[in-house]
Structure formats: C-alpha cells, structure tokens
Amino acid sequence: MTTYTTTYRNALRDAMSEEIRRDEKVYLMGEEVAEYNGAYKCSQGMWEEFGDKRVIDTPITEYGFTGLAVGSAMKGLRPIVEFMSWDFSMQACDHIINSAAKTKYMSGGVVDCPIVFRGQNAASGRVAAQHSQDFAGWYANIPGLKVIAPANAHDAKGLLKAAIRDDAPVIFLEHEKLYGMENEMPTDLDFTVEIGKAATVKEGTDVSIIAYSYSVETAKEVAKNLEKDGISAEVIDLRTISPLDETAILDSVKKTSRAVFIQEAWAYASVGDSVASLIQSKAFDHLDAPVEVFSGERTPMPYAANLEELALPQVDKIVEKIKTMVK
C-alpha cells in the first residue's frame, strides 16, 4: 500500500477533489469556497481545477443555499455544503433537520437526500461565543442524520470520502485546531474509513477515556500524564457520533472498569451524557467508579485567553479526577 503524508486541511481538499473527479454528481458549494479557496483554505486549488460548475461560491445566505442544495440532492446530485463555521448553520438548520433529515421518512422511503454538510466546529481560539459552539449533540439528536467528527488527517480524508459516497445526509464536524495536523494515509482513490466505527487510539487497562474531534488530543495528553503515575489509560476516538459505536465503547469499559468522557460541548443533553447513560445501563456491573463527563463550562464562550482556557476541558483537572477513580 502506498501512502502519503498531508495535513487535515489538505486531506479534506483531497477527499473532495477525488470524489468530484470520480462522480459527476458531486459538487462543492458555500461561502468563499471557490475563488477565495475556502475561509480556512480547505478547498485550495479546487475552483482552479474544477471551475464554476463544480465549485460554487454562494451569497452569504445559509438558509437559502442549504435549502437549494438539499433540493438538488433530492433530485440526485451529491452536494458538499461548507459552513464557514457550524455556528452559521443555525440559519440553515431548518433545511438540515426538516428537509434533509426527515423527508425520507415522510415520503415512505422514496426520497433520498445524499448530501454532506461540513465545516469548522467548536472552539478555534479567541473567536468568542458566536463562533465557538460544539454542535455534535444538537445534530446527533436528530434521526435521519449521520454525524461525524474526525480527530486526525487520516480519518478526515477517509470519513469525508465515505460521507460523500453515503446516501444519507451527513453532518461533518471539523476542528480548526486540527487543520494543521499531519498524518500518513493511503493514496488509494477508494480509501475510505467506515462510518459508525470508533478507533482505539491507545490501549490501556485502568480507565477508558472516550472523546471525539479535538478532545481526542486532550485525551491523549491526559493519558500521557497518567502514565507518570503508573495509570494505564485506553483512549477511544468515537470518530462517528451518530450512529454511535456502542460495541467499541462497552468492550473498552468492560476491560478497564472505568470510563471518562471529554467534550468541548456543554454537558447538559450532550453526547457525553448520552454515552455515560449507555455505559451505566449496559455495563453497570463492570464499573468500579461512576462515569465522569468533562465538558465545556456552562457559559457562552468568553474572548479573554485565560477565561477561554478555563471554559474548555482542563487536562490537569481530568488527570486529578482519574487518579481518585483509580486507587
């Protein structure tokens, strides 16, 4: 197998470009995706290669272009819609939820909507409350949507290609702090990562640390710190939030008997709370400690650097808590 190494940002670009070359029905649409090469440069060079038909700059009009893309998907095109920030999807979530997610069911199965909504999600750093929210739980709550949040460049490419080929509407949550991360990945044009499968990032025996997106980096750092105290942590990267890989979570917890979840999102009604509920209902007898969920503080994201740091999950706090769990 031949491989190459590139960044998360370019992996997304490569995934989109390969799928646009492969399938004439695939196109990319969004604000600044074409001539500007993407607000975060995730579509660098694509407009130059594919032109106006396949890489389309839209007006700043999320509700409208999302509905338009969904309509074209119902007819059989396979749009990739970029939100400059997932916070902006609030303007468009009616079409994501009421049109894209529900129409298959409402039509008795005859209308499909093969579409990918992608963009930067959660706290990219110092952009305050209206550009920092983690929407994983919001969209994972909706039947009819798949929700993906890759934590490295390899998975970003493989999962985005899988999402574009999937016939369901897919929410694809990227993270600005990961855009520069470099990983090795196959050059094979049919390389995909299966949707709905978690990955064991690091094996361990004392505690399972479960996370998605950038919080996997936090989890890895926590695990590294715990090693100094002789605690062996297993790190599980969910990769897909919905459908959830329950087997991977439960198998890990049954092995380690302790579970910790890390997320940037607010705790109440979140992915972390749902996973904690799952573990406690399906692996209760295996637990040696209550499941702990570390989340963003329940406040709009502050701008000041010190406050923003305090609002997000803290490695030190998580390490200290796990030490008390593993005595």
Partner: peptide, 9 residues
C-alpha cells in the same frame, strides 16, 4: 429553496 435546487439540478 428546495424547488430552486431542483431547477439547479
């Protein structure tokens, strides 16, 4: 917008 998207198709 959905119908406009079908025209786009």
């Amino acid at each position: 917008p959905l119908g406009t998207g079908m025209a786009f198709y």
